[in-house]
Design a protein around this nucleic acid. Structure first.
Lengths: 238, 238
DNA sequence: TGCGTGCCTGACGCTGCCTTGATGCCGGAT
DNA sequence: ATCCGGCATCAAGGCAGCGTCAGGCACGCA
């Protein structure tokens, strides 16, 4: 764990967990340049200690660490840490990436990635997490043209009331629960259909399709109900 | 039983009964954040003691406790406690959920659920409970277009007097007694037909149909006498 | 004894939902 | 250029739950 000298105060505190020096340097420079304060760890061990001690606002975690796999880190973190965790994975570690998301990570970046993408993801992760419970206070979830009233179990799209079947409603709820986060197929299936059907990926396609046709202006080009190829889905808010 | 230090005064006092630490933490944080004061118990034993000692305004009870099943807790609570009890159940314990409602729980949440749902249910439970006495005060129950005079045994719908058969009347009373609550089939059958006929679900269909035709503007699209699929019925007031 | 009212019971139909398979499209890989 | 896997869409089957209807029976009353 280290916090090299002069960090500009004010920006969000980010913990970067990355063993490769090159990559670490890139992340450090980029983040500093954009007013983040940066902590660094080069192993799982270090990462957990540092996170506990410094309570960062966000964790960027590279999978493929020397001492333990990243999944374990996510699990251990999640026992107490509720902030956003963004996972960085090399292209050939797809299964790990998914495991990490299942374990509670919020989003992922696949190497190689550019500065723009990195910053966008981090901003999104922080934004989501800071989002106040203003909507929740009313028992209503609102984003764009979508409006979900938990009290009355009613859904509205572009001002029009929409009838959802129980499963559709549950699926939508699950997505809202993880708004702006990547939700893996397994996770969605578990939450909506139960443990017994975690590999009926086809259900998801059918019901996502249904949701899109009921909620999206142009179901073929969804604005909210996004597909994350090879991983799952995501509800984009705003 | 525990009440960690500083609770803001003012909000309703909620007793959370939950053995899983993660879940307990989520509930605590969420509720605190929304001005509830929170008590916690991790076992049936503790729950009963705590409830008796502190008289919470509401109880959130997870089924599937280590020392006793949640149904027992509801039963024991109901021997003296009249406040709202909201049950939390995992998806695979549906039968238990119904048993808990039969035993006197007010509403239920199925894991996993989001903050919105949680808060909505609690608000509804508290709201209903504070108001239950009001309508019954004069021996007259009024909601929407429906008016029931318990003293005179008279029912009015949209200004017109309506003749109900004795059984219809008793069924309506049972629903009014639990206004806005989910009432299981078993419970209705018990209260109207008696213990011996708790599984004659067909009676309910016939008599609910009759009630709807006499009381609802459009019996095919009931506004007050609502079906809770796979569970029972509910009288919606307002 | 005849009539009316209310209750039970079975049959029926319907709707809405879930599941499943077939098909087509697109983009990436070979 | 072609193949292939993953995703979206469509349509059909089947099922369960619920609502509705009508006939029969019992009871009370005149």
């Amino acid at each position: 764990m280290s916090e090299p000298a002069k960090d500009p105060a004010g920006g969000p505190l980010v913990l970067v967990v990355e063993d490769d020096a090159q990559m670490r340097r890139f992340l450090r420079v980029t983040l500093r340049m954009h007013q983040y304060r940066v902590l660094e760890a080069t192993s799982a061990q270090e990462a957990l200690v540092c996170a506990a001690a410094r309570r960062p606002d966000l964790v960027v975690l590279d999978l493929g660490l020397p001492d333990a796999d990243g999944i374990t880190v996510v699990e251990r973190l999640r026992t107490w840490y509720s902030g956003p965790v963004v996972v960085v994975s090399a292209r050939h570690q797809e299964p790990d990436k998914i495991k990490a998301l299942d374990a509670g990570a919020d989003d992922y970046l696949t190497k190689p990635f550019g500065t723009g993408e990195l910053l966008a993801r981090l901003r999104a992760a922080l934004r989501t997490h800071n989002r106040t419970a203003a909507n929740v206070d009313q028992g209503v979830f609102v984003t764009g043209t979508l409006r979900v009233d938990h009290d009355r179990h009613e859904v509205e799209s572009r001002g029009q009331p929409v009838k959802l079947t129980p499963l559709e409603y549950r699926l939508l709820q699950a997505l809202i629960r993880h708004a702006d986060k990547v939700v893996t197929r397994t996770q969605l299936l578990r939450e909506v259909w139960g443990e017994a059907h975690v590999d009926e990926a086809h259900y998801l396609r059918v019901y996502m399709s249904a949701l899109r046709h009921k909620l999206e202006a142009d179901p073929a080009r969804p604005q909210m109900l996004l597909t994350e190829p090879n991983v799952g889905y995501r509800l984009r808010t705003q």
